[in-house]
Design a protein around this nucleic acid. Sequence first.
DNA 1: TCCATTTCTTGTCAAGATGACGATAAGTAC
DNA 2: GTACTTATCGTCATCTTGACAAGAAATGGA
Lengths: 232, 232
Amino acid sequence: MTISTYAQNVSHPPFAVTVDLVVLTIRESELCVLLVQRGEEPFSGQWALPGGFVLVDEDIEAAAYRELAEETGVSEGLHLEQLASYGAPDRDPRMRTVSVAWLALAPELAEPVAGTDAAHAEWVPVAETGLLTLAFDHERILADGLERARAKIEYSPLAAAFCPTEFTVGQLRKVYEAVWGHSLDPRNFHRKVTRTEGFLSETGGTSTIDGGRPAKLYRAGTRAMLNPPIRR
Amino acid sequence: MTISTYAQNVSHPPFAVTVDLVVLTIRESELCVLLVQRGEEPFSGQWALPGGFVLVDEDIEAAAYRELAEETGVSEGLHLEQLASYGAPDRDPRMRTVSVAWLALAPELAEPVAGTDAAHAEWVPVAETGLLTLAFDHERILADGLERARAKIEYSPLAAAFCPTEFTVGQLRKVYEAVWGHSLDPRNFHRKVTRTEGFLSETGGTSTIDGGRPAKLYRAGTRAMLNPPIRR
DNA sequence: TCCATTTCTTGTCAAGATGACGATAAGTAC
DNA sequence: GTACTTATCGTCATCTTGACAAGAAATGGA
C-alpha cells in the first residue's frame, strides 16, 4: 500500500513531517547561514537547509534539537525557536510533506560542522545566498528566518545569542551591524545598551581582543523585552 | 494496516496534520475567542479551538481558510496568519498528530456562527477562558495566540482588523484597550495614530454612533509597520 | 431654550529618548 | 614617544511620550 492510496481511505491522510533549520552565525563580521549540499534526489547537488524527518514518538522540538546537534556538533547553549510551518501540497515531489522550520542562532565558536549525514555542510554568507537556488521551498524559509532574526534583535536581547558568554559592547554592535547590514553609531549604541536596565550585566573583566582601549565585558542580562527597542 | 504498524516500516512515519484556529473578535468592548464544544471522544463535551484535518492535496493555509469560513460563516476580509505548530507525541491520544495553529482576527459583525459541524460554537470572553479546561493542548495554543495578538498590534496596523472597514479613533482605541486589558489616554492615543504617517486614512465621513461629538471616520492606511510602536 | 453630559480633538509642558558628533581614555604597534 | 585603534562619556537640538487643560460638537432632559 503506497502513501497515496492509503490516503484515499482515511479521514486523516498521512503526511511526512520534517524539521528544517535556519542556523545563523556571524563569521568575520558577516551573517552566515548553514547550508548542506544534497547528495540525493530530488535536488541532488543543490544547496538546502539542514533538516530531516521527525521520528515516530519524537517531539518536533526534540527533532529540531537533534538535527541541530547533528549538523553543528553543538548540543546546547544555542538559541532555538520555531519559525513557521510550510505545507504546500507540491513542496516535496516525493510525498506530501509538512516541514516545521526552526531558527537557530549560534556564536562564532561553532566552527566544526561535522555532518553526520554524508552531506557536505558549509557556512554561507547570507549576502551570497541570493545567487544560489535552494532546494524545495528553502529560499522562502531562509527569507522568513532572516526577517525573524532582523526583527527580533530589535526588541529582545537575542543578539547576545550570537556572542560568546562574555562579550563587549563592540562585539554586540557588530552583531547588529551584520544582521541588519548597515553600521550603527558606536556611541549611541553604547549608550542605549548600557543604559537599558537589565539588558547587560557587567562581569568586571575587560577585553582587548579588538585592539584599542580595553572594553568592559558583559553577560546577557535578565530582561526579556526591550521597550523602547533598539532602532535599526 | 494500521497507522502504527505502517509507521515502523518507513523512514518517514505518517502523521495526521490538523489546523487549529484562534479566532479573536471584540464584543461589547471585550476580547472574545471562538470555541466549540466537542461532540465526540476524546475530550467529548469539553471546549476546544475550532479546527480539523488538512485534506489530501490541500494547502495548509487553504485548510485554515476553509475551517475559518466554516466556523465563522465569513469567507473573506478576515485577517489570518500562521501562529505556530504543535507536535508533542502525546498531544492527541488517538494518533500522532501535528497541528498547525492559525490566528484570525474578525470584526464584530461576525455574529452568526453557524457551525457546519454539529459542534456548538460560541464566542467566549477571553477573561473567562481561565476557568475552562480546553481539549488537547489548546490552552497553550490560545495563550500563544493571545500573546501574538497583544504583541502585534503594538507595531503593526493589525488592530484595524477588529474594526469594520470604516471606524473612528475611539473604536480603534477600544480595540487596544480590550486586547491589552487596560485603558489608554484618549488624547495621547489620538495624537499617536493620527500623526503616524500612513497609519490611518481619513474617509471624510463622521460618526456619532458612540454619542458625543461626531468623530471622523478612517480606513486602515497602507503602512505595514509602526516605528516607534504604540506603547502598551 | 438652556444646561448637563458625552465623546472628540487640539494644545501645552516637562521628562525621556534619539541622532549627530566632539572629546577624552586607554590600550597596541612602530 | 607617536600614530592608530577602539571604548566611553558628554553635549545639544530634535523627536516622542505621558499627564492633563481646554474647547468643539453632538445628545438628552429640565
